[in-house]
Protein backbone atom coordinates (compact mmCIF):
# COMPACT_ATOMS: atom_id res chain seq x y z
CA UNK A 1 0.00 0.00 0.00
CA UNK A 2 2.82 2.35 0.92
CA UNK A 3 4.22 1.71 -2.53
CA UNK A 4 0.96 2.75 -4.11
CA UNK A 5 0.90 6.07 -2.27
CA UNK A 6 4.58 6.52 -3.04
CA UNK A 7 3.95 5.76 -6.68
CA UNK A 8 1.10 8.22 -6.82
CA UNK A 9 3.07 11.03 -5.15
CA UNK A 10 6.09 10.27 -7.23
CA UNK A 11 4.28 10.28 -10.55
CA UNK A 12 2.34 13.34 -9.48
CA UNK A 13 5.61 15.20 -8.89
CA UNK A 14 7.32 13.75 -11.92
CA UNK A 15 4.52 15.15 -14.05
CA UNK A 16 4.70 18.55 -12.38
CA UNK A 17 6.57 21.39 -13.95
CA UNK A 18 8.79 22.05 -10.96
CA UNK A 19 10.54 18.73 -11.07
CA UNK A 20 11.56 19.45 -14.62
CA UNK A 21 12.68 22.95 -13.74
CA UNK A 22 14.78 21.50 -10.92
CA UNK A 23 16.22 18.82 -13.19
CA UNK A 24 16.90 21.36 -15.92
CA UNK A 25 18.62 23.63 -13.41
CA UNK A 26 21.07 20.91 -12.41
CA UNK A 27 21.62 19.90 -16.03
CA UNK A 28 22.43 23.46 -17.02
CA UNK A 29 24.58 23.93 -13.92
CA UNK A 30 26.53 20.76 -14.62
CA UNK A 31 27.17 21.56 -18.27
CA UNK A 32 28.02 25.21 -17.66
CA UNK A 33 30.42 24.35 -14.84
CA UNK A 34 32.23 21.80 -16.94
CA UNK A 35 32.22 24.09 -19.93
CA UNK A 36 33.76 26.93 -17.93
CA UNK A 37 36.14 24.86 -15.86
CA UNK A 38 37.15 21.85 -17.89
CA UNK A 39 38.63 20.55 -14.69
CA UNK A 40 36.60 17.90 -12.93
CA UNK A 41 38.18 18.46 -9.54
CA UNK A 42 37.44 22.20 -9.52
CA UNK A 43 33.94 21.56 -10.82
CA UNK A 44 33.32 19.17 -7.95
CA UNK A 45 34.42 21.81 -5.42
CA UNK A 46 32.16 24.45 -6.93
CA UNK A 47 29.33 21.95 -7.04
CA UNK A 48 29.85 21.15 -3.39
CA UNK A 49 29.22 24.76 -2.45
CA UNK A 50 25.98 24.66 -4.40
CA UNK A 51 24.75 21.20 -3.47
CA UNK A 52 25.34 21.64 0.25
CA UNK A 53 23.29 24.83 0.38
CA UNK A 54 20.76 24.26 -2.35
CA UNK A 55 19.56 20.68 -1.88
CA UNK A 56 18.42 21.31 1.71
CA UNK A 57 16.67 24.48 0.61
CA UNK A 58 14.87 22.86 -2.31
CA UNK A 59 14.01 19.86 -0.12
CA UNK A 60 12.55 22.16 2.51
CA UNK A 61 10.52 24.28 0.13
CA UNK A 62 9.29 21.38 -2.00
CA UNK A 63 8.42 19.31 1.04
CA UNK A 64 6.32 21.95 2.68
CA UNK A 65 4.76 23.10 -0.59
CA UNK A 66 3.77 19.60 -1.55
CA UNK A 67 2.38 18.92 1.88
CA UNK A 68 0.11 21.97 1.83
CA UNK A 69 -0.89 21.60 -1.83
CA UNK A 70 -1.90 17.97 -1.56
CA UNK A 71 -3.83 18.53 1.63
CA UNK A 72 -7.20 17.82 0.01
CA UNK A 73 -5.96 14.62 -1.53
CA UNK A 74 -4.45 13.63 1.79
CA UNK A 75 -7.80 14.16 3.45
CA UNK A 76 -9.43 12.00 0.79
CA UNK A 77 -6.88 9.27 1.46
CA UNK A 78 -7.44 9.59 5.18
CA UNK A 79 -11.09 8.77 4.61
CA UNK A 80 -10.05 5.44 3.08
CA UNK A 81 -9.13 2.38 5.09
CA UNK A 82 -5.41 3.09 4.83
CA UNK A 83 -3.02 3.41 7.74
CA UNK A 84 -1.88 6.95 8.37
CA UNK A 85 1.72 5.88 8.49
CA UNK A 86 1.36 4.51 4.98
CA UNK A 87 -0.07 7.73 3.64
CA UNK A 88 2.49 10.11 5.05
CA UNK A 89 5.53 7.93 4.58
CA UNK A 90 4.41 7.30 1.03
CA UNK A 91 4.10 11.01 0.33
CA UNK A 92 7.39 11.75 2.02
CA UNK A 93 9.26 9.10 0.05
CA UNK A 94 7.57 10.23 -3.15
CA UNK A 95 8.76 13.80 -2.76
CA UNK A 96 12.28 12.91 -1.62
CA UNK A 97 12.77 10.30 -4.32
CA UNK A 98 11.68 12.58 -7.14
CA UNK A 99 13.90 15.39 -5.87
CA UNK A 100 16.86 13.04 -5.47
CA UNK A 101 16.26 11.69 -8.94
CA UNK A 102 16.40 15.22 -10.36
CA UNK A 103 19.65 15.81 -8.51
CA UNK A 104 21.32 12.55 -9.51
CA UNK A 105 20.21 12.71 -13.15
CA UNK A 106 20.76 16.45 -13.47
CA UNK A 107 24.35 16.30 -12.27
CA UNK A 108 25.08 12.73 -13.28
CA UNK A 109 24.38 13.14 -17.00
CA UNK A 110 26.79 16.05 -17.69
CA UNK A 111 29.56 14.53 -15.60
CA UNK A 112 29.20 11.09 -17.13
CA UNK A 113 29.28 12.66 -20.59
CA UNK A 114 32.48 14.43 -19.52
CA UNK A 115 33.98 11.11 -18.54
CA UNK A 116 33.82 11.13 -14.76
CA UNK A 117 33.65 7.34 -14.78
CA UNK A 118 37.20 7.13 -16.10
CA UNK A 119 38.44 9.83 -13.79
CA UNK A 120 39.88 9.47 -10.30
CA UNK A 121 37.28 11.98 -9.16
CA UNK A 122 34.51 9.39 -9.41
CA UNK A 123 34.45 8.72 -5.66
CA UNK A 124 34.43 12.40 -4.74
CA UNK A 125 31.58 12.89 -7.13
CA UNK A 126 29.75 9.87 -5.76
CA UNK A 127 30.17 11.21 -2.21
CA UNK A 128 28.75 14.51 -3.42
CA UNK A 129 25.68 12.87 -4.93
CA UNK A 130 25.16 10.59 -1.95
CA UNK A 131 25.34 13.48 0.53
CA UNK A 132 23.06 15.52 -1.74
CA UNK A 133 20.54 12.70 -1.68
CA UNK A 134 20.82 12.35 2.08
CA UNK A 135 20.31 16.10 2.53
CA UNK A 136 17.23 15.99 0.30
CA UNK A 137 15.71 13.18 2.38
CA UNK A 138 16.56 14.85 5.69
CA UNK A 139 15.20 18.27 4.84
CA UNK A 140 12.09 17.02 3.06
CA UNK A 141 11.28 14.96 6.14
CA UNK A 142 11.87 17.87 8.50
CA UNK A 143 9.74 20.24 6.43
CA UNK A 144 6.82 17.78 6.12
CA UNK A 145 7.01 17.37 9.86
CA UNK A 146 6.81 21.13 10.27
CA UNK A 147 3.84 21.09 7.90
CA UNK A 148 2.13 18.52 10.10
CA UNK A 149 2.69 20.68 13.15
CA UNK A 150 1.26 23.84 11.57
CA UNK A 151 -2.08 24.00 9.84
CA UNK A 152 -1.44 27.64 9.08
CA UNK A 153 0.40 27.72 5.76
CA UNK A 154 2.16 31.01 6.33
CA UNK A 155 3.43 29.93 9.71
CA UNK A 156 4.49 26.56 8.35
CA UNK A 157 6.41 28.14 5.50
CA UNK A 158 8.04 30.55 7.89
CA UNK A 159 9.16 27.84 10.26
CA UNK A 160 10.43 25.65 7.42
CA UNK A 161 12.54 28.44 5.96
CA UNK A 162 13.78 29.30 9.43
CA UNK A 163 14.74 25.66 9.96
CA UNK A 164 16.75 25.68 6.75
CA UNK A 165 18.34 29.00 7.69
CA UNK A 166 19.25 27.60 11.07
CA UNK A 167 21.12 24.62 9.68
CA UNK A 168 22.64 26.43 6.71
CA UNK A 169 23.79 29.61 8.44
CA UNK A 170 22.85 30.19 12.06
CA UNK A 171 24.22 26.90 13.38
CA UNK A 172 27.62 27.64 11.83
CA UNK A 173 27.49 31.13 13.30
CA UNK A 174 26.92 29.80 16.80
CA UNK A 175 29.52 27.11 16.17
CA UNK A 176 32.08 29.70 15.07
CA UNK A 177 31.37 32.04 17.94
CA UNK A 178 31.61 29.28 20.52
CA UNK A 179 34.92 28.16 19.02
CA UNK A 180 36.28 31.70 19.23
CA UNK A 181 34.95 32.32 22.74
CA UNK A 182 36.24 29.03 24.16
CA UNK A 183 39.55 29.42 22.39
CA UNK A 184 41.55 28.55 25.50
CA UNK A 185 40.11 25.07 25.80
CA UNK A 186 41.01 22.04 23.69
CA UNK A 187 38.38 22.20 21.01
CA UNK A 188 39.13 19.45 18.52
CA UNK A 189 36.78 16.87 20.06
CA UNK A 190 34.07 19.49 20.45
CA UNK A 191 34.49 20.43 16.80
CA UNK A 192 34.08 16.85 15.70
CA UNK A 193 31.10 16.41 17.99
CA UNK A 194 29.36 19.64 16.99
CA UNK A 195 29.67 18.89 13.31
CA UNK A 196 27.63 15.72 13.83
CA UNK A 197 24.57 17.66 14.86
CA UNK A 198 24.20 19.51 11.62
CA UNK A 199 23.71 17.35 8.54
CA UNK A 200 24.84 20.18 6.27
CA UNK A 201 28.16 20.51 8.12
CA UNK A 202 28.55 16.77 8.21
CA UNK A 203 28.14 16.43 4.45
CA UNK A 204 30.35 19.45 3.77
CA UNK A 205 33.16 18.06 5.88
CA UNK A 206 32.86 14.61 4.36
CA UNK A 207 33.21 16.06 0.88
CA UNK A 208 36.02 18.45 1.91
CA UNK A 209 38.05 15.59 3.33
CA UNK A 210 37.52 13.60 0.16
CA UNK A 211 38.74 16.56 -1.88
CA UNK A 212 42.23 16.48 -0.45
CA UNK A 213 42.08 19.89 1.12
CA UNK A 214 42.28 18.17 4.47
CA UNK A 215 45.87 19.30 4.84
CA UNK A 216 44.57 22.84 5.18
CA UNK A 217 42.70 21.83 8.23
CA UNK A 218 45.88 21.49 10.26
CA UNK A 219 45.73 19.59 13.50
CA UNK A 220 41.95 19.64 13.63
CA UNK A 221 41.96 18.29 10.12
CA UNK A 222 44.33 15.53 11.13
CA UNK A 223 41.82 14.45 13.75
CA UNK A 224 39.00 14.60 11.24
CA UNK A 225 41.04 12.82 8.62
CA UNK A 226 41.89 10.14 11.11
CA UNK A 227 38.27 9.83 12.05
CA UNK A 228 36.67 9.96 8.60
CA UNK A 229 39.59 8.37 6.82
CA UNK A 230 39.03 5.04 8.51
CA UNK A 231 36.19 2.78 7.46
CA UNK A 232 34.85 3.04 10.97
CA UNK A 233 34.65 6.83 10.87
CA UNK A 234 32.89 6.74 7.53
CA UNK A 235 30.43 4.22 8.90
CA UNK A 236 29.80 6.49 11.89
CA UNK A 237 29.29 9.48 9.59
CA UNK A 238 26.86 7.61 7.37
CA UNK A 239 25.08 6.18 10.39
CA UNK A 240 24.70 9.71 11.65
CA UNK A 241 23.22 10.80 8.33
CA UNK A 242 20.91 7.78 8.39
CA UNK A 243 19.82 8.76 11.89
CA UNK A 244 19.16 12.22 10.55
CA UNK A 245 16.88 10.64 7.96
CA UNK A 246 15.25 8.28 10.45
CA UNK A 247 14.62 10.95 13.09
CA UNK A 248 12.24 13.16 11.08
CA UNK A 249 10.61 10.03 9.66
CA UNK A 250 9.91 8.76 13.14
CA UNK A 251 8.57 12.13 14.29
CA UNK A 252 6.46 12.33 11.16
CA UNK A 253 4.87 8.94 11.75
CA UNK A 254 4.29 9.68 15.40
CA UNK A 255 2.80 13.10 14.82
CA UNK A 256 0.61 11.96 11.94
CA UNK A 257 -0.93 9.14 13.95
CA UNK A 258 -2.10 11.56 16.63
CA UNK A 259 -2.96 14.58 14.55
CA UNK A 260 -6.55 15.64 14.36
CA UNK A 261 -7.38 16.49 10.73
Amino acid sequence: MILKVLKYSFSDLIRSRWSYVYLAFYLVLGFVLLFLNDNLSKAVITLMNIVVVLTPMIGTIFGIMYFYNSREFTELLLAQPIRRRTIFLGQYLGVSLSLSLSLVLGLGIPFILYGITQSSQIWDFATLLISGTFLTFIFTGLSIFIGLLNSNKIKGFGYAILMWLFFAVIYDGIFLISLVVFDDYPLDKFTLFASFFNPIDLSRIMILLKLDISALLGYTGALFQKFFGTGQGLIVAFTMLLLWVAGPMFLLVKKSSKKDF
Binding site: V52, A168, V169, I200, R204
Partner: peptide, 11 residues
Protein backbone atom coordinates in the same frame (compact mmCIF):
# COMPACT_ATOMS: atom_id res chain seq x y z
CA UNK B 1 42.75 27.21 14.08
CA UNK B 2 39.85 24.85 14.79
CA UNK B 3 37.45 27.16 12.98
CA UNK B 4 38.95 26.04 9.68
CA UNK B 5 36.42 23.26 9.80
CA UNK B 6 33.86 25.84 8.68
CA UNK B 7 35.78 26.43 5.44
CA UNK B 8 33.47 26.89 2.45
CA UNK B 9 30.34 27.12 4.53
CA UNK B 10 27.67 29.68 3.73
CA UNK B 11 28.12 31.52 7.00
Amino acid sequence: PETIILLRSLF
